[in-house]
Design a protein around this nucleic acid. Sequence first.
DNA 1: GTCTATAAAAAGATAGAC
DNA 2: GTCTATCTTTTTATAGAC
Lengths: 210, 210
Amino acid sequence: MSAPHPAAGRPEKRRAITGAARRVFGNEGYVRAGVDAIAAEAGVSKRTIYNHFRDKEDLFLSVALEGAHEVTETIARLLDRHLRKIVDVADDLTAFALERVAAVAEFPEHFALVRTIEAEAARIPPAVLEEWIKAGPQTAHLRLAPYLARMADDGLLTPEDPERAADHFNLLTVVNVNQRTFYGAIPLPPEQVTELVTDGVRTFLRLYGR
Amino acid sequence: MSAPHPAAGRPEKRRAITGAARRVFGNEGYVRAGVDAIAAEAGVSKRTIYNHFRDKEDLFLSVALEGAHEVTETIARLLDRHLRKIVDVADDLTAFALERVAAVAEFPEHFALVRTIEAEAARIPPAVLEEWIKAGPQTAHLRLAPYLARMADDGLLTPEDPERAADHFNLLTVVNVNQRTFYGAIPLPPEQVTELVTDGVRTFLRLYGR
DNA sequence: GTCTATAAAAAGATAGAC
DNA sequence: GTCTATCTTTTTATAGAC
């Protein structure tokens, strides 16, 4: 993977490469993206890329994994910010879901890359794919559960299986929007996003609200 | 698109080409799939492909649209079979959802192609993409609504906006499974699929059941 | 309309100098 | 470790014979 290759050169070059790769892979997709183009975008020679990464696939998967961690951390911060202390259940959940959805628009290259991963899923080594899923979507997904459990403990939600509740929350809000926008590839008018998310939270509370 | 080209030769050849294209595009993705490979798979010369289709993109989009119509019709038949006459709301909805989900496994090449379309969404001409969405996912999605409306009229469901209810049904069943399996690229154990779908219908009925 | 042969461009990866 | 130059393969698309 992104493991420190035998000869890891200037870390600064490496970061230039991964940044460029994220952009080019995001814009062009895996196959169409040329290593030439990535090298040009990074301001680095092609040979330097091959000194840092075994091959094109290694570069792609490294960048994908890096982005997954980044987005997961961003979502963890959103969870903490909106759901650590609850003022109003509906308002706080809605605010969280809206920012969670907006995060997709804030990492356009990453989510373009996510679409590429989904398309290439059957051709990615299963172990690597699993690692990516665990680092990214699965964790971002499941980290909501403990917050819901806490809210149930505090009598703010009906006490049910928190992981299942988290699934339903995600489906009714984030997944719904991502499904329609193709992870941001076909943007939706903001007011429509707001409406979808608001309705999703309302529906969630019909299931789990007090 | 698939419009009858100036010189449309043997219709039989054309069908051989589209069938081969569906398989090769499905297995390799758009960019990696070679026109050579499609010609070989179809048992046809490459030139013949270019006589029937303007270029590779035209071929791909034609096949995608054709597949979308096909799957939409399949789902329409499932709707009619399971939901035209209701015996038991929960049983009938579950049976429908299970077959609806299974349909993804029955058209593996098509849904591999769907993943490719999602990945390429930002690079597909918007008008063409919209046409595909309307022919495929959107229609398959919305055709459920009238059945739910009918069930509400018959007092089997609470009378609410049927399109929204259809959204929620799809999210809680089909989308949930497709999200996890990447449209069938990473299959799930059948019993787990059954559990997810059953739970989804149960949750749907907590929202809309009597 | 269909075929074989080919043109023309682009891709991934490496050799070898510094 | 990084660069320039190059090798080799594969790609899309077309010319020209039948």
